[in-house]
């Protein structure tokens, strides 16, 4: 029983990160119907930004409290990554908005490869570790052990997702995002600046990935190719939840977190987990292509 609860915590921790990244896929798809295959690599870049800024802020000369350094690192990673995504949209995707969709998808793949190889060439292949913002504390409650880091990851992710959900549902910008997603030609008639709303969407998606990147970097190492596998898992999360559907991406992320953690528990080896994830993707695409929370509506594009 204790190990089960422990595994559930692990699944929630990993699922949180998948959900945060899945949101970027789903938001960009929602707004311009593009599967942004560079998003996993944008996440990767965010962890490097967190690595460099975090390392600088945690240097002994500054004597910043860990929580302050953590907060500043995350904020900086969010801003830099948002700017990167906005530039990618502006210069790589926007010129292709009227082109056949496949051109933009190929461009996205190219941007992803560029980010990987640029990182490899400038920073190198060695895995990096984010500095320790917090000393690890382990608590045991009823025989279940968990760490403060785990709680931070799960709680910060949940808070960010709640905030995003509120923005999308309650604010004018959120309404504009949904409106642009439905019909780009009518939105300007309401005074909505469509290009700016698209930029804002990329910025939000990327900064949420940067929250995921900073949290992920507190537990795992950082390397130039980390965005590939995690990007795929997050993409599958988005599709499982219903691509374009924000709450769906959140649910999908947690589902994939559970798949990853529980596959080795149920099946003989952890090597099955990608097989399970991709099988889920395939089955879903065949039987419920609009995902768990997505609705089969004929959307105007």
């Amino acid at each position: 029983m204790q190990t089960l609860i422990q595994q559930v915590l692990n699944a929630l921790q990993l699922g949180s990160v998948y959900a945060l990244i899945a949101l970027g896929y789903t938001m960009v798809y929602g707004i311009i119907r593009l599967i942004n295959f560079a998003h996993g690599d944008i996440f990767m870049v965010s962890t490097y930004v967190a690595f460099f800024i975090g390392t600088a802020l945690m240097s002994h000369a500054l004597r910043l409290p860990g929580i302050v350094a953590f907060g500043l690192t995350m904020a900086a990673a969010m801003m830099v990554t948002a700017l990167l995504a906005v530039l990618i949209e502006r210069f790589a995707y926007k010129p292709l908005r009227q082109a056949p969709r496949v051109s933009a998808v190929i461009t996205a793949l190219g941007v992803g490869l560029f980010l990987e190889n640029f990182t490899l060439a400038t920073i190198g292949p060695d895995p990096r570790f984010l500095p320790r913002f917090f000393s690890v504390q382990t608590f045991t409650v009823g025989g279940v052990a968990f760490s403060n880091i785990q709680i931070i990851i799960i709680a910060v992710s949940a808070a960010v997702m709640l905030l995003l959900d509120t923005i999308v549902r309650r604010t004018m910008v959120g309404m504009a995002m949904r409106a642009v997603s439905w019909d780009k030609s009518t939105a300007p008639l309401m005074g909505v600046p469509v290009d700016s709303i698209i930029s804002i969407t990329f910025a939000i998606g990327a900064s949420i990935a940067a929250v995921g990147g900073t949290l992920f970097g507190m537990v795992y190492t950082v390397d130039p190719y980390m965005g590939i596998r995690i990007g795929w898992w997050a993409f599958i999360s988005a599709v499982v939840g219903g691509i374009g559907n924000i709450r769906g991406a959140m649910v999908g992320g947690y589902i994939l977190g559970f798949v990853e953690i529980f596959t080795p528990v149920i099946l003989p080896a952890s090597t099955y987990r990608d097989f399970v994830a991709f099988s889920m993707l395939l089955l879903l695409l065949i039987f419920r292509p609009y995902g768990i929370l997505g609705r089969p509506v004929a959307q105007k594009v």
């Binding site: 949904r178 439905w182 019909d183 030609s185 009518t186 509506v297």
Partner: peptide
Amino acid sequence: RGIFANLTVQENLKLATWG
């Protein structure tokens, strides 16, 4: 008509007050 079918009636009206 170009209404935003995925928004409520109220949200359609509210969006029109943009700016």
